[in-house]
């Protein structure tokens, strides 16, 4: 069976041990996590997890169903085939001598990445984008000598006004006193990088 990388998005209760429960489930069921990213969601008390997992369709279906059984998982969806935006952030500490610094900065500019720290013999590059973009930049920088590297793993949201994970409409809508900024003209979906 063909295996592909799937993106699962889960809304989970923000309680101690939830991440442990989910990580333990993956190990126990012999599923392989490519990456997992957890953080606050739009609702207080709920976290949103983005899990990237590799496997064939049957296996992914099992993963989804098993995760759904965890009491603290409110909702889980496989958004692989949904219209979605997925991003990852990486910090790359790369060796930079006076002679290579200029070249590195050029590459960083092309990738619309940022240099967030400069030291005598190194730079820290911050890059945001999908995995391919991050991978490409890392590959390019490897030639200069990467000293340290950290990646967040994928986070993702489905496109459109209301995500399919929305649990319920908020009962109270806060009235904003400040005038709303005019919505930005979103013509096309933003380029991936």
């Amino acid at each position: 069976m063909k295996t592909t990388k799937h993106t699962l998005v889960a809304l989970v209760e923000d309680k101690p041990g939830v991440l442990n429960r989910i990580a333990s489930l993956f190990r126990r069921r012999n599923f392989n996590i490519e990456s997992i990213a957890v953080g606050q969601s739009e609702q207080s008390g709920l976290s949103r997890m983005t899990i990237v997992v590799d496997g064939d369709d049957a296996k992914i279906e099992q993963v989804r169903k098993q995760l759904d059984k965890v009491v603290e998982v409110i909702k889980i969806m496989d958004i692989t085939d949904e219209e979605s935006v997925a991003r990852e952030l990486a910090l790359i500490k790369v060796r930079a001598t006076p002679s290579t610094r200029g070249e590195i900065i050029q590459i960083v500019d092309i990738f619309r990445a940022n240099i967030v720290d400069v030291a005598v013999d190194s730079l820290i590059v911050e890059v945001t984008g999908d995995e391919d973009k991050v991978d490409s930049l890392i590959e390019l920088l490897r030639g200069f000598g990467i000293r340290e590297l950290t990646r967040t793993g994928r986070i993702a949201l489905t496109r459109g006004s209301a995500g399919p994970l929305l649990v319920e409409e908020p009962k109270e809508v806060k009235v904003l006193r400040q005038p709303l900024k005019p919505p930005r003209e979103e013509t096309e979906s933003p380029p991936d990088w």
Binding site: A58, E61, Q62, K65, Q66, D68, K69
Partner: peptide
């Protein structure tokens, strides 16, 4: 009753 058993 357990959806995860189906197709496992």
């Amino acid at each position: 009753i357990d959806p995860a058993e189906i197709g496992k």
